[in-house]
Design a protein around this nucleic acid. Structure first.
Lengths: 356, 356
DNA sequence: TTTGTTGATGAACACGTTTTCATTTTGTGA
DNA sequence: TCACAAAATGAAAACGTGTTCATCAACAAA
């Protein structure tokens, strides 16, 4: 129960095939054609007389026939599977991303193969080994401390790998060495707008409530915030440790005001953290938001517009991002050796009720 | 973009195999054994001299070899894939369930194959056709209006299918006709406790804020609530239409108090709906919870303990439920013809701050 | 030593497709 | 009608594995 029973422990008891699925041979026999014709009927670019194709598809429908993906994968080398490695499916932001990616990929004929990494963003090496067995055409990792190069070592076919740093996705192909396709998020815009707004309200002391320590997204946001404050001649932020969770953000905020010196505004590394901060301020410290303390989040998850929070937050457009990522994957699969692409997305501030 | 390009629109361009994965033949050659021996080395119950097995596994590690699941699936008839059909991955309850199921199944050597159904709980028939191609060993559907029998028609192998009604999971095997494995949730306990608590506070007029109309879970909860109220000699509830979303719950609550006659307590079909109701009461209607109106939810999602809501809710133990479901799947795969099993789970009230 | 039993071994087959290639059919213009 | 290109067709090979079956070695019991 505690460990994987993968790879070296699989039970390979043969399945009962009493109610076996229809095969291409059966369809061929029934329709008086060769098996090859059936195959061609299901491949739109193959040449086959239209009426013949129609008849075959008709018979296939009657027999409830579908090409077997395993067999197809074996000869084609394409599994039509996209592996996703996720530490926490419950996280609102990640679940949104999984949802949107699955929808988009499904429309392109790919199915999502979901794997759960460990909660600390790390990954059991055996998980990679296991995943490799399924031959995914591409891999998207939400796990920030497995670097593309490491992943590449395990997936030794030329599999496009995208590692999502929340902000950055990188591609690594065994062939392309250290050159990656990149999906970048320009944090600057949103943070710039947020800081300008705060400054307009006369905010002076800003606290940054961080995400997971290993998170590169978190590092990038912190760096950009510091840079922006400096450019505007404002004081450097007080940095609090966090881990993207509500509870940790809640406690960190309590500490900031009870033990520490407090702040005029809190910049949280993600929306869920912002919720924790808001609740600590309002329900435990007796402070009001935004009158006493202003709060800004990151992500703009659906919960951000709930009236209890009504959060002002820096938004990354999810649909745009997913479209871009899917486009990268498809292009890379089509042209494995093309020179690396780079797509850049913008962020912008969504102004709601927690500032001003 | 709008429709599936499944099945009849697949691009089957051959993948470049320049960096091909190691095959069992290569391992065999390198280790001076037959290919069969390699196969046996990876199947623990096969008989093979221990030292030979060790040597093979060693070579396999060096060559970074993993058995190809597609090939294995082809001959074995087992894909080690569990298909999940989900309308909304973002829903907190469903994402929790996906997360826990994936973790548990992964530990048993199964990977999760995720498909997205339409938002109205319905499913494109082509989605089933598509999924069938991957030969999942079992299917878990979160989509309430695809009945097991319909699913069975598409998956004509003896595939265990579990349809999750949030409260009820049923199994349908082509062989077993209309007899299902059943995973039941006893709603009665939790609702009983909630009603008793409300009655103790002198509540008289209760509103039931429903979930999706097609949802059987919703129907069951409404029915049980009515039954319980009747048993205790209380008035029948006012029933409001909903769809499990925050926004709809928010508006329904406004209507109830502005157009309708209001209520002393609101029973929401799920936690997210309860949040919508609470926010409408507090932030739009100027009423306080729990003093003016008491609110009870369903599910006990992680957000329920957030201070802004601190929701009193009827809990279904997720871990227990997932364990039971995985156990059912494994047993059914091991013994396809065994007589149907039934597991029953309980619910209980988690008392927090929205009542009392 | 002989017999019987158990465990290890590899050749051949099976799984359900796609693809290659040589062949046949169809269509088009002179 | 003929010649030629283009499209349609099916036989056979390939993909990478698990399993069956007959064989062989080893070892214990008679």
């Amino acid at each position: 129960m505690n460990t994987f029973s993968f790879c070296d422990g699989l039970m390979n008891d043969r399945a009962d095939k009493k109610a076996a699925r229809a095969t291409a041979d059966q369809v061929a026999r029934e329709a008086n054609v060769s098996r090859v014709a059936v195959s061609r009927a299901f491949n739109p670019n193959a040449s086959l007389k239209p009426e013949k194709r129609d008849r075959i598809l008709q018979v296939a429908r009657e027999l409830n026939y579908t090409p077997d993906m395993a067999a197809r994968s074996l000869v084609t080398g394409r599994s039509h599977l996209v592996g996703m490695i996720v530490p926490d499916v419950c996280s609102p932001w990640e679940s949104q991303e999984i949802d949107a990616l699955t929808t988009a990929l499904q429309a392109e004929g790919f199915a999502t193969l979901l794997f759960k990494a460990k909660a600390d963003f790390s990954m059991d090496p055996r998980l990679l080994t296991y995943m490799r067995g399924f031959n995914p055409d591409s891999v998207i990792a939400f796990t920030e401390n497995i670097l593309p190069d490491v992943l590449c070592g395990f997936l030794d076919r030329a599999v496009p790998i995208y590692v999502i740093y929340d902000d950055v996705a990188q591609f690594a192909g065994a062939a392309s060495g250290t050159l990656y396709d990149r999906l970048l998020v320009r944090q600057k815009n949103g943070i710039e707008q947020a800081v300008a707004l705060l400054q307009g309200y006369g905010v002076r002391r800003i606290a940054y409530l961080g995400g997971k320590a290993q998170s590169l997204a978190n590092a990038e946001r912190e760096r950009t915030l510091k840079e922006t404050l400096a450019e505007r001649g404002m004081d450097a932020p007080i940095v609090l440790a966090g881990d993207y969770t509500y509870d940790t953000a809640f406690r960190a905020t309590l500490d900031l005001f009870r033990i520490g010196e407090g702040a005029d505004a809190i910049f949280a590394a993600n929306d869920v953290g912002a919720f924790g901060a808001i609740d600590a301020l309002r329900h435990e410290l007796g402070l009001s938001v935004p009158e006493d303390v202003k709060v800004v989040g990151f992500d703009d998850i659906p919960q951000a517009h709930w009236k209890s929070y009504n959060l002002t937050t820096v938004r990354i457009d999810l649909e745009e991002r997913v479209r871009a990522l899917v486009r990268l994957i498809l292009m890379r699969l089509r042209a494995p050796d093309a020179t690396p692409f780079t797509e850049t997305l913008n962020t912008r501030l969504i102004v709601r009720g927690t500032v001003g």
